[in-house]
Nucleic acid binder design. Structure first.
Lengths: 191, 191
DNA sequence: AGCAAGGCTTAGATAATCTAAGTCTACAAA
DNA sequence: TTTGTAGACTTAGATTATCTAAGCCTTGCT
């Protein structure tokens, strides 16, 4: 198995440019400048050792090789896109489901998190629970616990609320520990 | 079409780690350290908003989502690998085919480039030609001409040989202008 | 107990990538 | 013919992303 793999950015740039037959249009689609596309495509051609485009003064044309490459690259990206959407429907834009242990319910402002409009975009639902297993099954995104879970592979952040002596523990999967949603929730708790 | 796309490196790291169920083994396969794999996977999980692995003290396990994701990601990589090998059989390791215009044949050391063992790894064949079209069709990788081709979308580098007043022009597709092979040939010419 | 394996985190270095600004050619309208 | 526009290109420098290196923790073996 070889891992001298062309870069994703290069392939993305090629795919978009080939569809539009224009670096400028590809750039706008991908939200970068045309110079970036030009460089990416050039690097890709360099890595492959062949030309993918003919640069005519009138615009772009695919070479025979580019023509052959495009449909397969597109197909691979479609596959990845579909698989990604299936496994992570809303990518990073989604709201979290949070479990709260019974014992700390009354430490939180009543109605939390509904009382704070800041958290609306980040919290889908809350539920009374302290079962870390629900995190591993992706049924919950985070837990608010009153004691440390220690050493089980989850991320755990200590949260000190303003009017409370004992800290809370914000527990998530490692990957979610530092996402926008988690940061918003923690900073709201710390008021 | 969405372009909030997980990074290729992240997906590569996930795919290798999921196959081996080990960050260390994946790292060795990809030629990086385990820390890099760990970070890549974490970033990917962050981007997707889900866990792909369960990190048990005994080692890695795939979550349900990781299990579902793996085969599709693998398939996409296989597609890209196959397509890439088809369109660029030897990736960047191949030797160049060089066209030399009749008029400068006698300016070169006799037997060029065979006289120089340095160029062996970089030159497959030479042929007498000055037809830039052969470059666009990928039949030739480069041309050595005695005059500038000006403004046709190809890259052109002026080469000044030691014992020669008039310069040569090393003409390639844009993507090949700065590759290892081209650099070796040009620096050999400039002696 | 002591050690190795294999996770994890972090800072800092390195490398990849992007932007911005300027060049050039072709084409079309005045 | 001249002028304006569009879209390619290059380059330097800034910004990001990524990697390494070093140290920590837990498990399981000897």
């Amino acid at each position: 198995m070889t891992y001298r793999f062309p870069s994703l950015n290069g392939l993305k740039a090629f795919e978009a440019a080939a569809r539009h037959l224009s670096f400028k249009a590809a750039a706008s689609e991908l939200g970068v400048t045309a110079g970036a596309i030009s460089q990416q495509v050039k690097r890709l051609e360099e890595a492959l050792g062949i030309s993918l485009f003919r640069r005519l003064p009138q615009g772009l044309l695919l070479t025979k090789e580019g023509e052959a490459y495009l449909p397969e690259v597109s197909k691979a990206f479609d596959l990845l896109t579909d698989a990604t959407e299936r496994v992570a429907p809303a990518m990073n834009g989604r709201k979290l489901s949070i479990g709260i242990s019974q014992s700390i319910l009354d430490k939180l402002p009543k109605g939390w998190p509904r009382h704070s409009p800041d958290l609306d975009p980040y919290v889908r639902e809350t539920r009374v629970s302290d079962d870390v297993e629900l995190i591993w099954t992706n049924d919950l995104d985070a837990l608010l616990l009153d004691r440390s879970t220690r050493h089980n592979g989850l991320s755990e952040q200590e949260v000190c609320m303003q009017n409370c002596i004992e800290p809370l523990f914000f527990v998530t999967r490692p990957g979610l520990a530092n996402c926008r949603q988690s940061r918003a929730i923690i900073s709201e708790l710390e008021c």
